[in-house]
């Protein structure tokens, strides 16, 4: 038995550098024009082209959740989408969460409940927690654990992260 000769289309492209084009991203309420090639991920656009380094690069494969941002209020992995695909959408990063009058309750809860150690997963955890509360499907602590499983914390602050989310969800369920 041998492999049949139904080969996939082969790409034999001569090496070349893509041209950049104007990409308009709306980040934290402000429209920004960037010169980007299609191959730039939303994560790299935020960090390297806009200096919004609050959104973290961990695995760059959608497994760790450190790059979580909100797009039209929903949490996504910014490493697995291209910046150019997000034109016209409203992107919120950790830098855009705090209000002029102060931190969001979830940010304060992360401080009060000591929901981090090294802090590298924290922006992603907080954006994910905001997304979780927007979605409204978590009712119990088990639900929180399940629906936060896309965010990894290697320092092991999980129990305090759940406490912080619980604290914000229950006393003020309509705040976020």
């Amino acid at each position: 038995m041998t492999l049949t000769d139904e080969s996939p289309p082969m790409v034999n492209q001569a090496p070349s550098v893509p041209a950049t084009q104007t990409v308009t991203l709306t980040v934290n309420g402000t429209a920004v024009e960037l010169q980007l090639a299609p191959w730039t991920s939303l994560l790299d656009a935020l960090r390297e082209y806009m200096q919004l380094t609050g959104t973290k690069k961990g695995c760059d494969h959608g497994q760790c959740g450190a790059c979580t941002v909100l797009v039209n209020g929903k949490r996504i992995n910014s490493c697995l989408t291209l910046a150019i695909m997000q034109e016209g959408n409203s992107i919120t990063t950790i830098e855009g969460l705090a209000q002029p009058e102060g931190l969001l309750p979830i940010q304060q809860a992360f401080i009060d409940h000591d929901a981090f150690q090294c802090g590298y997963c924290t922006p992603g955890q907080i954006c994910s927690a905001v997304g979780l509360m927007n979605e409204g499907h978590a009712k119990t602590t088990d639900d929180i654990r399940e629906l936060m499983s896309g965010n990894i914390c290697r320092c092991g602050a999980y129990t305090n992260i759940v406490d912080a989310i619980q604290a914000v969800m229950h006393p003020q369920p309509d705040k976020l």
Binding site: I76, N77, L80, S128, G131, S149
Partner: peptide, 9 residues
């Protein structure tokens, strides 16, 4: 399957 972030995408 997957995570909340991935299911949103």
């Amino acid at each position: 399957g997957a995570s909340a972030q991935l299911r949103n995408m």
